[in-house]
Simulated assay, not measured.
Amino acid sequence: MDSAPTIFAGMAFVLFAGALLVWTAVRVRHREPVAQDVSPVASATLAGLAAVAALVLGVWCLARP
């Protein structure tokens, strides 16, 4: 029973990371700003790093025994 919260947290992180990666990629592809009043390169990079970090955290949660 202890694995249910871990699975929920892992799936939440993975879904958030996937949505953030897709959203960032679409914004960059259409040459639209990822964040308002921030450098486009810096905001896309920071959003990408946050998405990758959330994805790694989600996979780690799901891989725990």
Rank of each mutant, 00 (worst) to 15 (best):
residue 42 A to N: 08
residue 14 V to W: 00
residue 38 V to Q: 15
residue 29 R to W: 12
residue 60 W to C: 08
residue 43 S to V: 01
residue 4 A to W: 07
residue 8 F to A: 15
residue 63 A to C: 05
residue 52 V to K: 08
residue 3 S to N: 06
residue 59 V to S: 09
residue 5 P to W: 09
residue 11 M to Y: 02
residue 55 L to G: 11
residue 31 R to M: 10
residue 51 A to P: 05
residue 1 M to I: 10
residue 11 M to R: 11
residue 9 A to M: 14
residue 2 D to P: 12
residue 21 L to D: 07
residue 48 G to E: 04
residue 61 C to N: 14
residue 52 V to F: 12
residue 21 L to F: 07
residue 17 A to R: 13
residue 5 P to N: 07
residue 55 L to P: 07
residue 5 P to L: 15
residue 28 V to A: 13
residue 1 M to A: 14
residue 5 P to M: 10
residue 26 V to S: 04
residue 31 R to D: 08
residue 50 A to S: 10
residue 34 V to N: 07
residue 6 T to N: 13
residue 54 A to K: 08
residue 48 G to A: 04
residue 1 M to G: 06
residue 58 G to T: 00
residue 6 T to F: 13
residue 53 A to N: 08
residue 57 L to R: 14
residue 52 V to H: 07
residue 29 R to N: 13
residue 20 L to R: 15
residue 14 V to C: 13
residue 38 V to W: 11
residue 48 G to V: 03
residue 48 G to L: 02
residue 54 A to E: 01
residue 4 A to N: 01
residue 61 C to T: 04
residue 46 L to H: 09
residue 3 S to W: 10
residue 10 G to L: 02
residue 35 A to R: 15
residue 58 G to C: 01
residue 43 S to L: 01
residue 38 V to S: 12
residue 54 A to L: 07
residue 17 A to Y: 02
residue 7 I to F: 04
residue 7 I to V: 10
residue 24 T to F: 04
residue 35 A to Q: 12
residue 45 T to H: 08
residue 31 R to A: 15
residue 32 E to A: 11
residue 65 P to T: 00
residue 65 P to A: 01
residue 38 V to L: 13
residue 36 Q to C: 03
residue 51 A to K: 09
residue 14 V to T: 14
residue 26 V to L: 13
residue 19 A to P: 04
residue 10 G to T: 00
residue 38 V to T: 08
residue 27 R to A: 12
residue 53 A to C: 10
residue 9 A to V: 09
residue 36 Q to M: 11
residue 7 I to P: 00
residue 49 L to R: 15
residue 12 A to I: 09
residue 9 A to H: 10
residue 32 E to Q: 14
residue 50 A to C: 08
residue 11 M to K: 10
residue 64 R to W: 08
